[in-house]
Design a protein around this nucleic acid. Structure first.
Lengths: 199, 199
DNA sequence: ATCATATGCGACAAAACTGTCTCACGGTTG
DNA sequence: CAACCGTGAGACAGTTTTGTCGCATATGAT
């Protein structure tokens, strides 16, 4: 039982009970409480390690989607592909580490804030580039689009856990919702009037 | 200091610290811990009361938007208006009671589940009617649309608290995202191919 | 003035969780 | 075989939170 195995067991269990105690996590991981404490000095240490892992995966998702290059290229097609790849990857990350999204204490932890802010800045810059390239509408702030993605990913996670939707459908549902919205299409029509941030 | 005043003070404080203790809530409400316990037998009792209040407001939002009548009418225009009204109302409810959305214990509480399920069923039926009337696209499950609304509302709440967006812009941003999505519009084009649930 | 009600304050016990420690056991390595 | 390392089990103290009580106080109505 290495550190990594304990961490994935912890993730698995925290996803069913986000408020689980160290004792419950240890039991779920099949180790004693003492052993758990040998790997992680305390609850905060464990949570921090899990949070860092999720940020690692977020960073990998950004890199894997090639958002930096796409942002620099300003090429609509590259931006579009990178966007699809990023959203698809974010779905899985949100599903796996979603238990932490609810945890208020972690969200404001000084060890995590700089990292998550930097990752978010990259994402916002990428989305803004997609707006400039005409891939995304530019009458909504890029920062709001970034939040909306996360909100939809959380919604998808919740729907999955409740059994409302099939796992294989999630990417289509989320991407469909994110890109095209829920309104029925009468070609060219926009349901809600554009706001003031258009240029 | 009546029960109602304590509850709104509790809401206010829980929105800044979702894990606040009874002592902290009492202090925030300007009453002693004993008084708090005289009104609510325990933490669970308080949380339950707040949750019921949020469900009350959800029900009022549904009624105020006239979703039952709109559902029965099958009239696209009425459904569209009701949908706008409902979403606008849900924004405020999510903003005010959002701290509870993170609370796993409440989400599965047997006293709340029947109520929230019934409210959700009404909403899903309403959304499905809007799909049949051609107001909403029908290649996404109504249940997913319902979850997506909630996810976007949570995202909006988070953005508000972080100061990313202005309160007055929230309805436009959320409705814009929900109805039209984030893709730039080339008239009639759909970014993500329709799935298998179309008819 | 008196009584009832609501409240504040402090004390208390019970529970839950945490973090640390010791000791014994078992497998591995030298 | 012997030393070593990781582990499990259990005990322990410290902390936090919770829920309850008794008592004093103030406010207001009769």
């Amino acid at each position: 039982m290495g550190r990594d195995e304990i961490m994935s067991a912890a993730i698995r269990h925290l996803n069913t009970d986000p408020a689980a105690s160290m004792a419950q996590i240890a039991e779920a991981a099949g180790v004693s409480r003492a052993t758990l404490h040998r790997h992680f000095s305390g609850r905060e240490d464990l949570m921090l390690a899990l949070a860092h892992q999720s940020l690692d995966r977020w960073a990998e998702a950004q890199a894997g989607a090639g958002i930096a290059e796409a942002t620099a290229s300003a090429d609509p097609e590259r931006l579009g592909h990178a966007l699809h790849a990023l959203l698809t990857a974010l779905i899985e990350i949100a599903d796996e580490y979603g238990f932490g999204l609810a945890d208020h204490a972690m969200a404001v932890h000084p060890d995590l804030l700089p990292r998550s802010e930097e990752l978010e800045e990259r994402e916002v810059a990428f989305l803004a580039a997609a707006q400039r390239a005409g891939v995304l509408r530019d009458d909504l702030p890029a920062r709001w689009l970034s939040s909306a993605v996360l909100g939809l990913a959380v919604a998808a996670r919740e729907s999955l856990r409740r059994g409302d939707i099939a796992r294989r459908d999630v990417p289509r549902l989320l991407l469909g919702m994110f890109f095209d919205g829920a309104a029925a299409r009468n070609p060219g029509e926009r349901t809600v009037p554009a706001g003031r941030e258009g240029r």
